[in-house]
């Protein structure tokens, strides 16, 4: 059961972040204190050794919240889709 003190987030991983976490997509319920992208990275890093490895070098991790580029300070709301990926290399 979701309490008012938790928020449910859909997390997506791309490229080598997906390979390290070994999951493309997961739904998580985080405590109310996890209110920003930066706090979410800390929380996710504790989920598995793979997650820890994925977030080990923060400089190489980019983020989008609800399909728009975000940064560590971007606030999170229940139902948000949060994607983590390396710097983009298309074109």
């Amino acid at each position: 059961m979701q309490t008012p003190d938790t928020r449910t987030l859909k997390i997506l991983y791309f490229a080598w972040l997906r390979e390290r976490t070994r999951v493309a997509e997961e739904e998580v319920s985080v405590p109310g204190s996890v209110a920003s992208v930066g706090a979410l990275i800390e929380w996710l890093s504790a989920r598995s050794p793979g997650h820890r490895a994925a977030f080990a070098n923060r400089r190489t991790v980019r983020c989008a919240v609800n399909q728009d580029f975000a940064d560590l300070a971007t606030p999170l709301a229940s139902g948000d889709e949060v994607a983590f990926f390396p710097p983009v290399t298309g074109g």
């Binding site: 390396p86 298309g90 074109g91």
Partner: peptide, 13 residues
């Protein structure tokens, strides 16, 4: 093309 390379979510392996 310059913005696509830095602002569109594609990754190459």
């Amino acid at each position: 093309i310059d913005f696509l390379k830095t602002r569109a979510p594609f990754w190459k392996k």
